Simulated scan of single mutants.
Amino acid sequence: MHSHYGINRLSRMRVKDLGKLLIEAAKKESEDSLWERWVRLCPYMEIGQMKFISFDDYKKALIKPIVKLSEKTSEEIVEEMMAVATAYESQRSG
């Protein structure tokens, strides 16, 4: 995470905002890792040892769609999690 998210600021964040931040940080870390791997392949693509593949195509090939583990809609899941977050925040401030 970016350095301006110190522990004091993170501890004051609402649960749902912290969750969003963590998801974005994980996505960024994953994309950075894929980028580094792709860059290491570039010399082989440049000399013709490997067929060229764009970074976007490389990323699409390696990132698989999320498998659905629940029969609930995303709206139902969000509604449930918002109730949990609200209960947690009311206990925390209470």
Rank of each mutant, 00 (worst) to 15 (best):
I47K: 14
M1V: 11
A87Y: 06
P43Q: 11
M50R: 15
R92Y: 01
L18N: 02
L10V: 14
C42G: 03
K28A: 09
M13G: 05
L22F: 04
K51C: 06
A25N: 09
E71H: 07
Y44S: 15
A25L: 02
S33R: 10
S93F: 00
A61P: 00
R40Y: 11
D32W: 02
L34W: 11
M50D: 07
E71G: 13
D56W: 01
K64V: 06
R12Q: 14
V84M: 10
D57I: 02
L18M: 08
I47G: 01
K68W: 05
E71Y: 05
E36N: 13
V15L: 15
V84A: 09
K51R: 15
K27G: 03
L21G: 03
M81E: 14
Y5C: 03
Y5K: 03
G94Y: 00
T73N: 06
A26Y: 06
E46H: 09
E29F: 05
I53G: 02
K60W: 00
M50Q: 14
R12F: 04
Y88K: 14
E46I: 05
E29R: 07
E79W: 14
S90W: 01
K20R: 11
K68C: 07
K59H: 01
Y44I: 01
A85V: 08
I53Y: 00
L41Q: 13
D56M: 05
S70I: 02
G6W: 02
S70K: 03
K64A: 12
H2S: 10
L62M: 12
L34I: 03
G48Y: 02
D57Q: 15
